[in-house]
Amino acid sequence: MLQSLSSYRIFYTVAKTQNISKAAKELYISQPAISKSIQKLEESLGCELFRRSSRGVLLTEEGELLFTHVSSAFETLTLGEDKLKNSLELGVGHLKIGVSSTLCKYMLLPYLKDFTKRYPHINISIVCQSTNESLQMLEENKIDIGLIARPENQKTLNFSNVAEIEDIFVATEAYLNVLNARGISSDAILQHSTLMLLDKHNMTRQYIDDYLQENKIETRDLIEVSTMDLLIDFAKTNLGVACVIRQFVQNELANKELLEIPLGFPIHKREIGFAYKNTLKPSKSLELFIDFYQNFHPGE
């Protein structure tokens, strides 16, 4: 583009008003400044754009051709400004959240239910994946925020704890009766049962593997699954002992559909929270979500 946007704004306004005096008032600049700008534009383009008349100025044939394209450009800019203004007034935006399928179902949904009521014009995208994958996508700026277990290294992250979770081992009474009939004592259940765990890509699995190794618990039969829901369902069907999160089997424990396996060494609780990069300025949508979850109390 040979000329600045301001030169074309002056040309556009003069052509629209057909009067330099009116254009000066509309643009809040002096008439000589407008005349000088038009003169420079004509010299730069190598043609006359306006003809003076008794009532003001009229576009030449060349001016008409230029005005067709300039007016289209400024109408597009005006439309963009109007849409942006409307977007800001309505709170339109987009938020991309990374979360495991387990945390999505049991922890994220209550937040989203209230957040979308308050901000209905913010579009939410959910990327269901492991905590490790969410951390990678945060690093690569592919998601705005993740609901994850507290990572060991969080130098580039702002992490806000929203809940504590506790891992436990559970099985049905029928399955435990089978083990008891085989003469397996309660303190040896993990070593002699079919143990059901999340797959190795999951941070929960890595945490449990560390627990088993630290306490020198060697497992024999192992079933790996991809979701916590499958672990719970498999445990209910007497397939073995499942490692699950206590908060997600409260009903099953209360009605004794599942029983907790006593452990000689308890598994330490873990923190779950929202994390986003501290090296980037949050978008307006992310700022609203951060403010929301910092003041949100599930169940209230």
Rank of each mutant, 00 (worst) to 15 (best):
N180H: 15
N278C: 12
D291A: 05
I20P: 00
S21P: 01
E152S: 02
E173Q: 14
L157R: 03
T116M: 13
F292M: 01
I97F: 04
T237D: 15
Q206V: 08
S72P: 04
E214V: 13
S134M: 05
L176V: 13
T219P: 05
Q191E: 10
I29N: 02
T78Q: 09
L5N: 06
G240R: 02
L90D: 07
F234C: 08
R205P: 00
K277G: 15
A73C: 04
N215C: 08
A188I: 09
A254E: 14
D144N: 10
A163F: 01
E224Q: 07
T116E: 14
V92P: 05
I97P: 06
A254W: 10
S125E: 11
A254Q: 15
K113M: 10
N161L: 10
S130L: 05
L135D: 05
E271C: 00
L109P: 00
N255Y: 12
V178Y: 05
R118W: 11
N123L: 09
L5A: 08
Y207G: 02
S285F: 00
I122S: 14
Y119T: 13
G63H: 00
E62A: 11
I208G: 00
N158Y: 15
K113A: 11
L59C: 10
P298T: 14
D209H: 10
F234I: 12
R246D: 08
H121A: 14
I184Q: 00
A149M: 09
